[in-house]
Each structure stands twice: as structure tokens, then as C-alpha cells.
Lab assay of single mutants.
Amino acid sequence: EFILQPIHNLLMGDTKEQRILNHVLQHAEPGNAQSVLEAIDTYCEQKEWAMNVGDKKGKIVDAVIQEHQPSVLLELGAYCGYSAVRMARLLSPGARLITIEINPDCAAITQRMVDFAGV
């Protein structure tokens, strides 16, 4: 995967993360976080594997957030924003999600994903 990915990106003209974002923009409903998550899950199941938590493990994350109702949540590494959208949609009003992503391209994609999801 890591050796072939740059070749695939070159042939496709963009990165996997950008392709995931484009899929979301084309297939998800703006302002609907659940729709965004479903679009990412569908893309990763049908098109390309991606390094995200996914729906199965995501339900565990959901349960922890719902049980503890944090007022501040810190995410280290956002990748394409799946977990940020997943967690933010469950936060109480006034709660904050702080996401740190070292890769500026992934940070920009995450910001667009979060904005599109409306969270």
C-alpha cells in the first residue's frame, strides 16, 4: 500500500484523502454529520482502504462520549476528519473538540470535512 499509494495518487491526480473528501462532497448531505460518516464508510469499504476508526470501532467511541459527556475533548491526529466528525456530533452544546494534525494537507481536509458536516 505505502509503495503503490504515490503511484496511485499520481495517476489519479490527487491524494486518497482528497478523494475521500470529494466523495463526501458529492454523496453526503451538507450539515448532516451522520451522512458524512456513512459516505466515508462507504468509500472505504467499496473504493480504497483508509486509516480511520470506521463504524464498528466508532460505536465504541460513541458510547464512551455519551457516557462521560466531556466538556473538552483532545484528538491527536485527525487524518481526514472521520473521528472529529464522529466525536463532535455527540458533544453537548458548549463542549469543545480540539484536534491536532501535523500534516497541513490532512488538517485542511479535516477542516473542510468538519465544516461540511456542520459540527
Rank of each mutant, 00 (worst) to 15 (best):
R112W: 10
A108S: 11
V119L: 11
Q26K: 11
D14E: 07
P30R: 06
Q34P: 15
L10P: 00
F2S: 03
I100M: 10
I20M: 01
S35C: 10
L4P: 02
A28T: 02
N22D: 04
H23Y: 06
I98T: 07
T15P: 01
Q5R: 00
A107V: 13
L21P: 00
T99N: 15
A117D: 08
D14G: 07
K16M: 03
L21Q: 08
D105N: 14
N32K: 09
F2V: 04
P30A: 07
C106Y: 01
E29G: 03
M113T: 01
N103S: 10
M113V: 05
E101Q: 05
R19S: 13
T99A: 07
E1K: 14
L97R: 06
D14A: 06
H8N: 07
R112G: 05
R112P: 03
T15S: 08
D115N: 14
Q26R: 00
L21M: 10
N32I: 13
K16R: 05
N9S: 04
S35R: 15
P104H: 14
E17A: 03
C106S: 09
I100T: 09
A28E: 15
Q34R: 15
P104T: 13
P30H: 13
A28P: 14
L21R: 00
I102S: 06
I98F: 12
V114E: 13
I109V: 11
E17Q: 09
D115E: 07
P104A: 03
N32H: 15
V119E: 12
T110N: 09
F116C: 09
D105H: 13
K16E: 00
Q5E: 06
D115G: 11
D115Y: 14
N32S: 00
A108D: 12
M113R: 08
H23Q: 05
E1Q: 05
E101G: 14
N9T: 01
M113L: 08
E101K: 12
L10R: 00
E29A: 01
T15A: 03
I100V: 05
G13A: 06
E1V: 07
H23N: 03
N32D: 12
D105G: 10
I7N: 02
Q111P: 04
A107T: 03
P30T: 15
I102N: 09
F2L: 04
Q18K: 02
M113K: 05
P6S: 10
L21V: 08
R19G: 11
T110I: 06
A33S: 07
P6R: 03
N22K: 06
V24E: 02
V114A: 06
P6H: 07
N22I: 02
Q26L: 05
N9Y: 02
V119M: 11
D115A: 08
Q34E: 04
I109F: 13
Q34H: 09
R19C: 08
H27P: 15
N9H: 00
I20F: 03
E29V: 14
H8D: 14
H23P: 02
A107G: 09
M12I: 06
Q5H: 02
E1A: 00
N32T: 00
I100L: 02
I3F: 02
A33G: 06
N9I: 04
G118D: 11
Q111L: 03
I100F: 07
S35G: 12
E101V: 15
E101A: 13
A33E: 00
C106F: 09
A108P: 08
E29K: 15
G31W: 08
V114G: 14
H27N: 06
H8Q: 13
L25V: 01
I20L: 04
E29D: 13
I100N: 10
Q111K: 11
R112Q: 13
L25P: 00
F116I: 07
G31V: 14
R112L: 07
T110P: 04
L97M: 14
A117S: 08
S35N: 02
I109T: 11
I7V: 00
K16N: 02
E101D: 06
I102M: 01
A108G: 10
I109S: 06
V114L: 14
F116V: 04
H8P: 02
L25R: 00
M12T: 03
L11I: 12
G31R: 14
N103H: 03
N32Y: 11
R19H: 12
P6T: 12
D14V: 15
F2C: 03
A117G: 13
M12K: 11
E1G: 05
H23L: 01
Q18H: 01
N22S: 00
L4V: 05
Q18L: 04
N103Y: 03
L4Q: 00
Q34K: 04
H8L: 13
L97Q: 07
I20N: 05
A107P: 14
V24A: 00
E17D: 02
D14N: 03
I7L: 05
I7M: 06
L11F: 01
I102V: 04
I102F: 15
Q26P: 07
I7F: 01
T99I: 14
E29Q: 12
G31E: 04
L11R: 04
I98L: 07
G13R: 12
Q18E: 08
Q18P: 10
C106W: 02
I3N: 04
R19L: 11
C106G: 13
A117P: 07
G13S: 13
V119G: 15
D105E: 10
I100S: 10
G118V: 12
F116S: 15
I7T: 05
I102T: 08
G13D: 13
R19P: 15
H27R: 11
P30S: 08
V24G: 02
I102L: 10
T110S: 09
G13C: 07
H27D: 14
I109N: 07
I109L: 11
P104R: 09
I109M: 11
A107D: 12
S35T: 14
E17G: 05
F2I: 03
G118S: 12
F2Y: 04
A33V: 11
L4M: 07
T15I: 02
A107S: 10
V24L: 05
N103T: 12
T99P: 10
D14H: 09
I3L: 08
D105V: 13
N103K: 14
Q111R: 05
P6A: 15
I20T: 00
I3M: 01
N9K: 08
L11P: 08
G118A: 12
H23R: 02
L4R: 02
H8Y: 04
D14Y: 09
Q18R: 01
H27Q: 12
L97V: 15
F116Y: 12
H27Y: 14
D105A: 05
A117T: 10
P104L: 13
H8R: 04
Q26H: 06
A28V: 09
F116L: 15
G118C: 10
M12V: 05
N103I: 06
D105Y: 12
T15N: 10
M113I: 08
C106R: 10
H23D: 00
L25M: 01
A33P: 15
A108T: 09
V114M: 11
P30L: 03
D115H: 09
Q26E: 11
Q5K: 11
I20S: 01
D115V: 06
G118R: 12
L10M: 08
I98V: 10
M12R: 09
A33T: 03
P104S: 14
G13V: 08
A28G: 12
N9D: 01
N22T: 01
I3T: 02
Q34L: 14
L11H: 04
T110A: 04
I98N: 05
A28S: 13
T99S: 09
H27L: 15
A108V: 10
V24M: 02
M12L: 08
I3S: 07
I98M: 15
L25Q: 01
I7S: 07
Q111H: 05
P6L: 11
Q5L: 04
E1D: 06
E17V: 06
L97P: 08
L10Q: 01
V119A: 10
E17K: 01
S35I: 12
L10V: 09
N22Y: 00
K16T: 06
Q111E: 11
Q5P: 00
N103D: 03
L11V: 13
A117V: 15
G31A: 03
I3V: 09
